[in-house]
């Protein structure tokens, strides 16, 4: 029993504190061999990160990704869950498994596939758009369209996971609630808006927290599809942190990741405040 606790502490809890410590030092790659040459530098790394143009850009991009991506994903997930719970009576298992498929597949493989789907001329999406007379842009090479493309892809990949949780939430609502609404003369939309949705509040809180935490760290999508471009329009905080790590600036990289951590904690806290049961 004890060795496993040690293992856990060494590889999970330890690095959290280690990371905090490192963010206040000037540790770089070459210091791996000479740990004594590491000096404390106070808040220098944090100042440096916050005054870095690219870091601020990456923070804005991450905010964009989360603010648009999370609601889009949740709406898709909720729509799919309602469809499965109320609309489709047969083959529900097929639909459920189908919608869930992208969640279990490697994000790297998905990003590779979507690069082809979004290709300018030979791509699947622009071909389909061409059928209805729309001349689609070169999605990933456009400063305007690259980020929305990544967001739609992320929503496509992740909605299945929130859908399963919504489905469990919907099935927990007793039939009698809807019947009562029916007797009072409420239409389907009114029943959904004023009866079902308020009862789903805890589920919505939960899915928005989990999806939000995931999206705040988005990394693989720009790594594989755009390398942060064009002109840094899709670089994320995680990706920029990884780049600084790659340059050997470990102290700076950990301070950036800690800033991200603090933001995640604050956002989660706000979500709890806004969505908790009244």
């Amino acid at each position: 029993m004890l060795p496993f606790v040690v293992l856990f502490l060494a590889f999970t809890a330890g690095p959290v504190l280690g990371s905090l410590g490192m963010s206040f030092t000037d540790i770089r790659q070459r210091d791996l061999r000479t740990p004594l040459s590491v000096n404390g530098v106070g808040f220098d790394n944090y100042v440096k990160a916050l005054s870095d143009e690219t870091f601020r850009r990456s923070a804005l991009n991450t905010a964009y990704f989360v603010v648009v991506g999370v609601p889009l994903t949740l709406v898709l997930a909720l729509a799919a869950a309602v469809l499965l719970d109320r609309g489709l009576k047969r083959f529900t298992a097929v639909f459920k498994v189908g919608y869930y498929l992208p969640v279990v597949t490697s994000i790297v493989a998905i990003a590779v596939i979507w690069r082809f789907v979004l290709a300018p001329d030979a791509g699947l999406l622009n071909t389909v758009l061409g059928w209805v007379g729309i001349d689609g842009p070169n999605w990933l090479a456009s400063k305007t369209w690259a980020m929305p493309s990544l967001i739609v892809m992320a929503a496509w990949r992740n909605f299945g996971s929130a859908m399963i949780i919504f489905l469990a939430g919907l099935q927990g609502i007793p039939q009698s609630v809807e019947e009562a609404g029916q007797i009072d003369g409420a239409g389907p939309w009114q029943r959904f808006r004023y009866l079902i949705l308020p009862l789903l509040r805890p589920t919505i809180l939960f899915t928005s927290v989990v999806t939000g935490i995931g999206y705040l760290q988005f990394f693989e999508e720009p790594f594989v599809m755009t390398q942060g471009g064009p002109l840094n329009s899709t670089i994320s905080v995680s990706m920029y942190t990884y780049q600084q790590f790659g340059f050997g600036n470990y102290g700076l990289a950990t301070s950036m990741s800690y800033l991200l951590f603090v933001v995640i904690a604050v956002v989660t806290f706000i979500q709890f405040r806004v969505l908790r049961e009244k």
Partner: peptide, 13 residues
Amino acid sequence: VPGMVTFVPLFVL
């Protein structure tokens, strides 16, 4: 805790 936070010290370790 996000994986992004722990990976640098973990890498050093």
